[in-house]
Nucleic acid binder design. Structure first.
Length: 480
RNA sequence: GGCGGCGUGGCCGAGUGGUUCAGGCAAGGGCCUGCAAAGCCCUCUACUGCGGUUCGAUUCCGCACGCCGCCUCCA
């Protein structure tokens, strides 16, 4: 069974057939580093991290390129507000982004590219577009002439005429067509600027992605990703630039777009004032809960961000954690997610991993994949008791399930670590209290025993009584 | 107005032309437990509406209604 993806250009699910068998080049539009990334942005990038991991798991040699837009009007504005330089702003928020993404379990891209490191490449591309008659100068600006690129609109499926009908006010004075977009922007005084044949200035937003993606992956690379709101105009413009410059297509073989995050049924936007930063979510819920939330629905669906959704995610994740701990005890060896596995070809036929793969092969159907793990966990939980009792068959089956569990949860990028006691002192005090509680229980002083248990509970220590004595652990994540 | 997506049981969210079932959360009952917790078992008669195709549609087609996104910087 082949891996199938929904290609936005074709608007259908198609088999992924890379340009070069076994190798996948993917480029994903990263953040503009002018402020903390919000949870929607983070969800998209967590998802592409997941897609990259899954492609690796399926044996593809993946090269994952992501960019930072580190020169941009918003960065300049931000620097002005803070009374500092744009590059200081860009570096600070890039570092914050990397911290947030690490907390969310996203691995760094293989190649991280910054717009400011590629100005000469962009200037070269712009010059080429002018030479090809696809761009023109207007004072110190350079614009792409959309009317000169016949395929303009093919990704977003709209024609220039249609767009003209819905056109809004305020066309830029130098533009020949309202939808012409800037390749190069003349610098105003005090703005960061690079020398160019058209005078000092900076590149437009769209050109960086065309130039950097093809520089590192070549024309006609496999997967280009981003969130759905980039389809128009950003990705449309990337196509126009890259294919216009090359004189042929395709720029990209498969276009993948993530659904946008909604806040309580409405769009998350600055104007509505309902932006939630990824850092805040990580701080409040923990990165792993946020990752579960992000990945538990298909990347293409619009998801609603809410407390309830995060609460559900935390509960589900807790179930996995509990199983990992219990299976580890029953087997006498830790059960922990194992990242970085590659599933050899021909092993798709059996068991839970097979069902997992079948789901993920269908355009990364993570909901189906997660359901498979939940079913594995239930099966495993049923085996716990007989395995602990010494039933060899149950033990073997449980061991096999635990292996699968470790493989799949590792693939998903989870760690499932129980929170550790902050010190040996804490652990010692808890143990001491539990011994006192056992004495109380032995003398049937349940009032005292329950008081100790509930008191510990309020401090975040969960106590469970088992046939083999009490067991304790710290409660899940933040906000517990 | 143009383009696109979606409407599944209390909530979230997969999936399928027909005989058993997604999964999670929540709720109720049971087992276990001194009581809990965790876990397990059971229950909670789902597919927006109306037509059409079909032996049979939640699943295909049409229409209607509703919701959402993009069309301007936007992840």
């Amino acid at each position: 069974m082949a891996l199938r993806v929904y290609d936005v250009m074709r608007r259908e699910v198609v088999e992924l057939r890379p340009r070069e068998p076994g190798r996948v080049g993917m480029y994903v539009c990263g953040p503009t580093v002018y402020g903390p990334v919000h949870i929607g942005n983070a969800r998209t990038l967590v998802w592409f991290d997941m897609i990259r991991r899954y492609l690796r798991y399926r044996g593809f040699d993946v090269t994952y390129v992501m960019n930072y837009t580190d020169v941009d009007d918003k960065i300049i504005d931000r620097a002005r507000i803070e009374g500092t330089e744009p590059d200081v702003v860009a570096k600070r928020y890039a570092a914050m982004f990397e911290r947030d993404m690490a907390a969310l379990g996203a691995q760094p891209p293989d190649i991280l590219v910054r717009a400011t490191d590629h100005i000469p490449d962009m200037i070269g591309a712009i010059r080429g577009l002018i030479d090809a008659g696809l761009a023109y100068r207007a004072d110190g600006d350079v614009f792409f002439a959309v009317e000169r690129f016949p395929d303009y609109g093919k990704l977003s499926r709209r024609s220039l005429d249609e767009m003209r009908a819905g056109e809004r006010v305020d066309p830029h004075p130098g533009k020949r067509h309202p939808l012409d977009f800037a390749l190069w922007k003349a610098a105003k005084p005090g703005e960061p600027a690079w020398d160019s044949p058209w005078g000092p200035g900076r590149p437009g937003w769209h050109i960086e992605c065309s130039v950097m993606s093809t520089k590192y992956l070549g024309m006609g690379f496999d997967i280009h990703g981003g969130a759905g709101d980039l389809i128009f105009p950003h990705h449309e413009n990337e196509i126009a630039q890259a294919e216009g410059l090359a004189g042929h297509g395709p720029f990209v073989r498969y276009w993948l777009h993530a659904g946008l995050v909604q806040m309580a049924g409405e769009k998350m936007s600055k104007s509505v004032g309902n932006i939630v930063s990824a850092g805040d979510v990580v701080a409040a819920w923990g990165g792993e809960v946020a990752r579960y939330w992000a990945l538990s629905a298909s990347y293409r669906t619009q998801v609603v961000f809410s407390e309830d959704a995060l609460t559900d995610a935390r509960a589900a994740l807790e179930r996995w954690r509990t199983f990992a701990a219990a299976a580890g005890r029953a087997l006498g060896a830790p059960v922990a997610p194992r990242p970085g596995l590659v599933r050899p070809p021909g092993t798709e036929g059996r068991g839970y991993p097979a069902r997992f793969v079948a789901a993920m092969d269908d355009d990364f159907n993570s909901a189906g994949a997660f359901a498979t793990i939940h079913e594995l966990v239930r099966t495993g939980n049923r085996l716990l008791e007989p395995a602990e009792r010494g039933d060899a068959t149950a033990r073997d089956e449980l061991g096999s399930l635990a292996d699968d569990f470790a493989e799949l949860t590792g693939l998903l990028g989870f760690r499932l670590e129980a929170p550790e006691a902050s010190s040996g002192l804490v652990a010692g005090l808890v143990e001491l209290l539990l011994r006192l509680r056992e004495e109380a229980r032995a003398s049937r002083d349940f009032g005292r025993a329950d008081a100790i248990r509930s008191g510990l509970g309020e401090l975040g220590v969960v106590v469970e009584d088992t046939p083999s004595g009490p067991r304790w652990h710290l409660s899940g994540g933040p906000e517990d």
